[in-house]
Amino acid sequence: MQRILQAGEIEALDRTHFPRILLPSPASLFAERAARVRQLADGNPIADYLHFIAKIIDAQHTAVATLAATPLDKAVLAQAQAHSMPLLPALEHIDPAWQGVLDTLLDTLSADTGSGGLPEPLQPLIAALRELNADERDAIARKLLQKEGSARDIGISPFVMAALQVTFAQRASQLSESDVPYTDPATICPVCASEPVSSVLRIGGPMAGHRYLHCGTCCTEWQMVRVKCSHCESTQGVRYQGIEGGKDVVMAETCDECGSYRKIINQEKDPLAEPLADDLASLMLDLLMGDTKYQRASPNPLLYVAVAEEESSAP
């Protein structure tokens, strides 16, 4: 007897089908990211900084276990689907649980008294961050989500963004691919409306050879063809620049139309490459790009130095 196949069954039989959305798995995401950062620290000029960032990511992994599942509002999901808009725009859906995650991060880091623990110059900043009330913390979080971090917040911004990242990734992990609408523009995260930190050429299974943009806030990935600029979607004047003599694991994808660049991470060159970690560890490429006409399209959430420096130098 013949029967009608459902959509999911049809896709399973289609050898050309590949996932449009890759949702985060917080239980393993941060542990794997921390391991990659430590690997990239070996012989890196910014090794000390990377080891410290790995400690923050370790603390993120610890904080994941403290979060309970957050019920998803079906009406909100339906509205986003109906209007092709991001499901849970970050500025409008900051989970109050992020405050507890932040405290967990700070407690975990403060308890680490060994090598690579909380640097002494940051301790007064962290003490001040602990003393802020919920409204003051939320105000800083909103500024950072809008890329408005000031020089005053430069020391605490990685901790704030790390806490937000945990809560948004945990919420995104409860979704299914079918929950996530097709959105316009395709250059922002279809889950939380944030910008991608970088893009990645994936390997393995149906994802092999496809480029995904990696959200710096909720860690969702969404597929975008290689021939388009990941910032303005232009197909004209897209080029790639790297460090001479490098392995081309990390390249700067530049666009003559909008004058921006965003890094593209190639797992075909290194299967262990990770979007946020490899972006962070390749600051030398950012320094070299600073001598060109191209501006970085969006910052790394754990590194807001450029944003703060630009603001502090403004007239």
Rank of each mutant, 00 (worst) to 15 (best):
F18W: 10
P19I: 01
P19V: 00
P19G: 04
R20A: 12
I21Q: 08
P24C: 08
A27D: 15
S28F: 01
F30C: 02
F30R: 00
E32Q: 13
E32T: 05
E32A: 14
A34I: 03
R36F: 14
V37W: 08
V37G: 02
R38V: 07
L40W: 07
A41H: 02
A41R: 00
D42M: 10
D42N: 10
I46S: 07
I46M: 05
I46A: 07
I46R: 04
I46P: 00
A47T: 11
A47Q: 14
A47P: 04
D48G: 08
L50R: 11
H51W: 10
F52W: 07
F52N: 00
I53M: 13
I53E: 14
I53W: 06
I53Y: 12
A54G: 05
K55S: 15
K55Y: 12
K55N: 13
I57K: 03
I57V: 15
Q60D: 11
H61S: 15
T62E: 15
A63E: 03
A63Y: 13
V64N: 01
V64E: 05
L67D: 08
K74S: 15
A75T: 14
V76Y: 09
V76N: 07
L77T: 03
Q79R: 15
Q81N: 10
A82C: 08
A82D: 14
H83K: 11
M85W: 09
M85C: 09
M85L: 09
P86C: 11
L87W: 13
L87E: 12
L88F: 07
L88A: 00
P89Q: 10
L91F: 12
E92N: 10
E92Y: 02
H93M: 02
I94P: 04
P96R: 04
P96A: 08
A97D: 02
A97C: 02
